[in-house]
Amino acid sequence: MDFGFCLSPSSHVKMDSIDLTTFNRLKETNPDVNTCIACGSCTSTCTAGNFTEMSFRRLLLMLQRGKEDEAKKMIQRCMLCGKCTLVCPRGINIRKILLDITR
């Protein structure tokens, strides 16, 4: 029966049921993924981010919140120029992490 409306999908991040395989795997080879303080330097300096939604800070969060598909889609925009790695105050090897995500 068509009521003219339907259930809205939940906007919650379901932490109990998300799949963190990629992030956990990443953590093994790059322990520094845990040290991000979300300052946003990477996003603001991003060459690709100048034209697109590319944001490494959010990408890391996506992986931590089980949004792997979104993260992988975002990576496609990356030019690998390395500016983010250069400005990161925590010295995170961002380029390596970006490349490792898709392994």
């Binding site: 009521f3 003219g4 339907c6 259930l7």
Partner: peptide
Amino acid sequence: VQADRGYSMSNTHK
């Protein structure tokens, strides 16, 4: 508003 009624129901559903 009929278009928003889904939100109402989603709350009940939850």
